[in-house]
Design a protein around this nucleic acid. Structure first.
Lengths: 179, 179
DNA sequence: ATGTCCATGTAATCCGTTACATGATTAT
DNA sequence: ATAATCATGTAACGGATTACATGGACAT
């Protein structure tokens, strides 16, 4: 239920359209909270109803008009209040680990291939994060505003590294069983 | 959408009641796929309709009757087929990282406390995993059936370790900003 | 007395995914 | 020609969460 909050957080940075938001949920903040464009549009409608954002249409020629959403004072109070509330552990749901867990009843070559695909996916993510880190966050000049994003990104990177090494180790351990 | 599969995987181990399943989704397999007892009961009804499990009631005195679910031949074929299909990346949703990301608009002492709570939660999880590993999986005598669970558990542990160190690092980095 | 364990579920609501829908502009 | 980008959404479905509901046994 933190989609509302995540959207408001994005809007504290600058006013944005639903389209812009959908894109940032596919990158930057999307590394910690994913959402599709449909979810974003639906949630924006709700936020508007609750008075947490204000929206105005901007005419464009040759392109569809944009609807720019701005966080309201109530919206800012809302995220302040949210920030103090304790939050839950993220729920774990990893189908690949379920397959590993079920090793006995699973097609082994297929599983091994899926593990390798997974390693590659984590490598791709890691590369993407590293590129962003190098491009946008020069360690010497970090404003407080950037700092949080920098720390979160750093955690994202070390998390990917850990995933890569531990899936690779899993592949080795599998090899030992029937190799 | 892998709850059905996760339940079937549990039932390959031994026939179980919904209550038993709900408990294992709160431990063992629940480390990789969480589900509440309501979800389990609903999914069991569907699996029965699809002929993937068979259920029979067992009378008890002094306690409510148990309904024991057994995986059918069709059920076993179903998980074989599932095991070959590629699976998705787990979706990331971590409210605490969103708060870190939004550092500028957040109550700092509250955030720091939440980070510390989080470190403790990961430590508790790690301890729980380690205890299970020691109790049930003696490295020298691992059947193929145990092996997958052992590898998955090992990954769970190193994942927790990584979380602990990287959240601790985040706390240190936060301290540097205004300490 | 109070609470926890056993064991089953229903109902309501909310969140997430998939598919559908439009239509001009720009790049290959 | 074909596809991607910009920009907005709706509709249907399914998964997840929260609350409600029952009722005996047993421990503190």
């Amino acid at each position: 239920m933190a989609l509302a909050e995540a959207i408001l957080v994005c809007l504290t940075d600058r006013p944005m359209s639903g389209y812009d938001l959908a894109k940032t949920f596919d990158a930057s903040i999307g590394f910690f909270w994913r959402a599709s464009h449909q979810q974003v549009y639906r949630e924006l409608a709700r936020l508007r109803e609750r008075g947490l954002v204000e929206s105005r249409e901007i005419e464009q020629k040759g392109k569809p008009n944009r609807i720019i959403h701005t966080i309201t004072k109530t919206g800012k109070e809302f995220i302040q209040a949210w920030s103090v509330k304790p939050c839950r552990m993220p729920s774990v749901k990893d189908e690949l680990l379920v397959k590993l867990y079920a090793l006995d009843d699973v097609d082994m070559p297929a599983l091994r291939e899926q593990l390798e695909v997974r390693v590659d996916q984590h490598k791709a993510k890691m590369d993407a994060y590293l590129r962003i880190k190098e491009r946008f966050y020069d360690k010497k000049t970090l404003s407080r505003h950037q700092k949080g994003k920098y720390i979160a990104l750093t955690m994202g990177i070390s998390n990917q590294v850990e995933m890569i090494t531990s899936f690779e180790k899993a592949i080795t351990m599998l090899g030992e069983i029937d190799g």
